[in-house]
Design a protein around this nucleic acid. Structure first.
Lengths: 194, 194
DNA sequence: CGTCTATTTGAATGTACTCAAAAGCGGTGG
DNA sequence: CCACCGCTTTTGAGTACATTCAAATAGACG
C-alpha cells in the first residue's frame, strides 16, 4: 500500500529496511470522498497529505465566496497548507477532495521526530521543498509576465494529467481567471500553430 | 563580519563554536556595485547569496526586454535562482545589485558538504526553504485573487523597508504591472482610511 | 548646469470581469 | 428508458481594469 510513497522518497534518498519501516510506522491512512473536506479554514493543518490515489485541491475562499486554487494534488503528490503546517496555527486555506481519494498522512509531530531520528528524512523533505519552491517561482513569473491565454497554454503543456481529471472551472480558479473567460480563451484558439 | 549570518542561522538552530567556524570556513565574500550583475541569464548559479548589506534583485527579462522581478533581497536575506542552484544548470534569471552591496557566498558544493558533515545545517536550510515556500504561496494567492491596487497596498504594508530603498518602477515590475499604472494607482488613493 | 532616468498625465486600446441567459451533460428517480 | 434537476460550459453585451504610446515634468548625478 505504501510502495508509492516509499518509491517517491527513494527517488531522492535511499532507505534501509529499518528506515522504511520506521517511516511507515509513522504514517496513517485515510479515505476521503469527493467534495469532502480534509482541512477547513481556521483549522490547524496537523498532517501532511500524500495522495495515494484520487485528487485534492488547496484553495482560499475570498470575501465574495470565490475560490482561488493554490494547488492540485494527484497520485504521488504531497499537499499541505504550508503556513499552517509549519507553524501549527490556524489555516486560511481549505483542502478538499475533487475525486474519491486514498491518502497517506504524516503529522508534523511525527515528521519532526523523524527528522531527529534520521536526518535522511529531513534531507528528503528539504529536497522536495526546494523543488516546490522552484516551481512556485515559475508560476509567479508566469503570472507577472504572461496574459491568461498563454498561462493556460502552458498549463495544458505542463500538466496534461490534470487536464484529464479537472473540470474547466477549477482550472480557471487555478489560473486566476473567471470560468467565462477561460471558455472564451479556449474557443478563440482553434489553431495552435507557432 | 559574519555575525549577521550566524545570528540568522541561530534563529533556527543553535551552533557550537566548532560549527560556526566550519560554516564560516565555507563562506566567501564579495563586494558588488550598483547595477553590477551577480548572475546573468544562461550562467549557472553556483553560489547562494546572503546579503550582508545593500540590495539585490532576481528577475527575468522577457522577449520584449521587460523585466519581471521575482525577488528583492536586502540585508539579512538570501537570494538565489533556486532552479539553477539546485540543478546546477543554466539560469533563466538575472541577479544584479540595486545598491552597492556586500555579500556572503556559499557554493552549492559546500552547502551539500555541510549537510553531510552536520545535519543541523540541512535543518536550517530546510526551515528557511519551508518559510519561503509559504511566502511564495501567499504571493500567488494575492496574484490570483486581488487587483493591482490591493496588491500594492499589501506590499506597502508588508515590506516597508523595501519601500524606502526601491524606485517605483522596480516595485511595479515586482507587482506585475506597468510603472505608469502604478503611478496612477498611487495618485488615485489619497485617502487610506478603512 | 545639462544629461539621463524615473515619474506623472492623458488618450486610445486591449484584456479580463460582471451579469444574464442559453445550451450541454450527468446523475437520479419514476 | 425517459424526464427532470443541478451544475458546468458557452455566448453576448456592457463595464472595469490595466496597457500602450506619447509627451510633459520631476529628480538624481556628474
Amino acid at each position: 500500500m505504501y510502495q508509492l510513497i516509499i518509491d517517491n522518497i527513494q527517488k531522492h534518498v535511499s532507505l534501509t529496511e529499518y528506515e522504511k519501516n520506521l517511516f511507515i510506522s509513522f504514517l496513517s491512512t485515510k479515505h476521503i470522498k469527493k467534495r469532502e473536506f480534509f482541512l477547513q479554514e481556521g483549522e490547524i493543518n496537523t498532517h501532511a497529505v500524500f495522495v495515494l490515489s484520487g485528487c485534492l485541491r488547496a484553495y482560499r475562499v475570498d470575501e465574495n465566496g470565490f475560490e482561488h486554487i493554490l494547488q492540485f494534488a494527484i497520485e504521488d503528490w504531497w499537499i499541505i497548507d504550508v503556513m499552517s503546517f509549519i507553524s501549527q496555527k490556524k489555516s486560511y486555506l481549505t483542502i478538499d477532495a475533487i475525486e474519491n481519494s486514498h491518502l497517506a498522512l504524516l503529522s508534523r509531530e511525527h515528521q519532526l521526530e523523524l527528522f531527529n531520528k534520521c536526518p535522511k528524512f529531513e534531507r528528503y523533505f528539504r529536497i522536495i521543498t526546494e523543488n516546490r519552491m522552484a516551481s512556485l517561482q515559475c508560476r509567479i513569473l508566469e503570472h507577472i509576465s504572461l496574459p491568461a491565454a498563454e498561462r493556460y497554454a502552458n498549463f495544458v503543456k505542463d500538466y496534461p494529467k490534470f487536464m484529464l481529471q479537472l473540470p474547466q472551472n477549477q482550472i480557471a480558479a487555478y489560473l486566476g481567471i473567471t470560468p467565462e473567460f477561460l471558455s472564451k480563451i479556449r474557443h478563440k484558439t482553434p489553431n495552435k500553430k507557432a
